[in-house]
Amino acid sequence: MSETPRGVGVRVPPTADPNRTMRTLDTLVRRVAIPVALRTSRSRHPIGQVDRDLRAVVSRITVAGEGVKVFELSRADCKQFPWWFPGAHIDVVLPSGKVRQYSLNGRRDNPNQWRIAVRRIPLEAGGGGGSIEMHELEVGDALVVRGPREAFPFVFNEAGYLFVAGGIGITPILPMLRRTARRNRVPWTLVYTGRTRDSMPFLDEIAEIAGARPGNAERIHVWPDDEYGTPDAAKIISLAPAGAALYTCGPTPMIDALRRAIPDPQIDALHYERFSPPPVVAGKPFRIRLEREGVDLPVRADETALTAVRRVHPGQAYSCQQGFCGTCKVRVLEGTVEHRDRKLTDYEREGHMLLCVSRGSGTVVLDV
Rank of each mutant, 00 (worst) to 15 (best):
T4M: 14
R6M: 13
R6F: 15
V8P: 01
V8L: 15
G9S: 14
V10F: 08
R11L: 07
R11Q: 08
R11T: 13
V12C: 03
V12Q: 01
P13N: 03
P13H: 06
P14D: 12
T15L: 14
T15P: 01
P18V: 00
N19V: 09
R23W: 03
D26F: 07
D26I: 07
L28C: 12
L28T: 06
V29L: 15
V32F: 01
V36R: 01
L38S: 06
R39K: 02
R52L: 08
G65A: 05
G67I: 11
G67V: 09
R75P: 02
A76W: 05
K79F: 08
V92F: 04
V92P: 02
V93I: 15
L94M: 10
S103M: 06
S103D: 05
L104H: 01
N105Q: 09
R107D: 15
N112T: 10
Q113C: 11
R115A: 12
A117R: 02
I121P: 02
A125C: 08
S131C: 07
E133C: 07
L143T: 09
E150L: 14
F152P: 02
E158I: 08
A159D: 08
L162R: 05
L162I: 12
A165F: 08
I168D: 10
I168S: 11
G169V: 07
I170R: 02
P172A: 07
T180N: 00
A181W: 01
R183Q: 11
W188E: 09
W188D: 09
L190M: 09
Y192T: 10
T193F: 12
R195E: 14
T196E: 15
T196M: 13
I206L: 09
G211R: 04
A212K: 14
A217L: 09
E218P: 00
R219M: 05
A233I: 13
A233L: 15
A234P: 04
L239G: 04
P241T: 10
Y247H: 04
C249F: 14
G250M: 08
P251D: 08
P251A: 15
I255P: 02
A257I: 06
A257P: 06
L258H: 06
R259Y: 03
I262C: 14
I262D: 03
P263A: 03
P263H: 05
P265Q: 11
Q266T: 07
Q266V: 07
I267L: 09
A269V: 01
R274P: 00
F275A: 08
S276A: 15
P278A: 15
K284C: 06
P285W: 06
F286A: 01
I288G: 01
L290A: 05
E291G: 01
E293Q: 15
E293H: 13
G294R: 05
D296S: 04
P298C: 00
R300E: 07
E303V: 12
T307G: 04
R311A: 04
R311N: 00
V312P: 00
H313L: 11
G315C: 00
A317H: 09
Q321I: 00
C325A: 07
R331V: 10
V332E: 11
E334A: 13
T336F: 09
V337I: 11
R340D: 02
D341Y: 03
T345I: 00
D346Y: 03
E348G: 03
E348T: 00
E350V: 13
G351W: 13
M353T: 04
L354A: 05
L355F: 12
G360H: 11
S361K: 15
G362Q: 14
V365R: 12
V365I: 12
